[in-house]
Design a protein around this nucleic acid. Sequence first.
RNA 1: GGUCCCGUCGUCUAGUGGUCUAGGACACUUGGUUCUCAUCCAAGAGAUCACGGGUUCGACUCCCGUCGGGACCGCCA
Length: 486
Amino acid sequence: MAEQIRTRFAPSPTGALHMGGARTALFNYLFAKQQKGVFVLRIEDTDKERSKKEWEEDILEHLSWLGLDWDEGPGKEGKYGPYRQSERTELYKKYLLQLLEQKQAYYCFCKPEDLEAQRQDQMSRGEAPRYLGTCRNLSQEEQETRLKAGESAVIRFMVPAKKVSFQDLVRGTVEFDAGLAGDMVVAKDLNTPLYNFTVVVDDHEMNITHVIRGEDHIPNTPKQILLQEALGLPRLAYGHLPLLLGPDRTKLSKRHGDHSVAQFMQEGYLPEAIINFLALLGWNPGTERETFSLTELAREFSLERVQKGGAIFNVSRLDWLNGWYIRQKSTEEVAELCAPYLVDAGLLGEKEIDIQKLAKIVALYRERLKKLSEIVELVDFFFVEKLSYDKDLLLWKDATREEIRSALKKAEDIVRAIEEKDWNEENITKLLMPEAEKEKNRGYMLWPFRVALCGKKASAGPFEIATVLGKQKTISRVQEAEQLLI
RNA sequence: GGUCCCGUCGUCUAGUGGUCUAGGACACUUGGUUCUCAUCCAAGAGAUCACGGGUUCGACUCCCGUCGGGACCGCCA
């Protein structure tokens, strides 16, 4: 039996889960699921300064919201835990000691300021900045005495000066001269290992088989491979994903605005839409199909079909997908999803939520929604007592106030004659439409009638609105409009 | 600057030597459907396949070069 595929998403809790991270997580999830493998979530919180519990919570919460459930990770302990690097210090220490004993790592006493000056100097001369190896040949004794004397030091890995090439799952052969940057710091001390080191240890210890991450990690891969070789660990499979880009074609970042998943969730984007959108950014099924659920994606996904070039994060496409997913839902479901927005806007009390009633309103607007948050300004007129709008809005084309007012009066009379029990869309349409036909064109009656009911230049149809509004409110709003025109 | 990666409509992309006078989707424009908006339907505009040179009977597809864009060069991850 072939070895089970294991992928991982390894965010550092130094900020909210953003779209780029979500897409990396998604691709790892899809690859694992499609191969009947395991998707691991590992929190890389070795940077004690910048890591915050709240960010970890944000990441966990939004990953779950997106439906990217991890098989192992925080809250879902498996046999390779713990899944927070801050809880694995002893493990890293063991490997650090191994490296030191093998004389493939050494203590470096160079001052950060000196190193920085060196870098500046190299840069100014147009050279590649690299560590010169000042402490590389310090004897064991000297290292120990200086350490005992309390001199501050870091641990450097003796990077072999050789070319490393690996088969990237999306790019093919990638070759690097790893020695170029000089010996790298793998830990500040035995209890404070750094990124490139902990990744190598954990990916091995957690039995990860495929490392799928952003293209920005390509330069880290050869370093990690060399570390694996020094530690005697097997090499993993790597796949580097194209970056998510801003409109200026640079890596998506804060500069391009807030792209946290939390933000999109608040605005009323559906997880299905975000997943679908993200999946098609850098990957495609090879068919002309555009919409996929998570499960369908997991079935279709393959790393071979992942794009090499970066992709611009194009919100209008997300909007279209989001609208599409909203239209796929039942009115009850959409009402359920919209309710919190109406409550937040103060249009509805928490306790007054009646999904059946709300569904009738939502039914008129479901196909107009791109984001759930838009529901508020679309349907607010159903919830307020008195409308406020510019009276000129009632005027249709070249009609005079008088003409409009009399059309409204006619509509009012017709509507008034309808019995409460017969108040439904069919009847209202049947009685009002012929009358509207008598005008120069229907707009002379329908436009002001509709504006009178909702106070907006764009809305659902007048008969639908009247039906939901009810007879009393319909009549009073038409009367109010007539008043405005006097 | 060095190293590495990438380069088909505005955007996401299909395309693995001939079926491509380059297909789809979003966005855009126009028309149709009960006044508006949206949906839906139909149509349209939009890509000298970055450029130059090879290889080949034939290149968007293979090779080389050029140009352009990006990522990375931390005691962050």
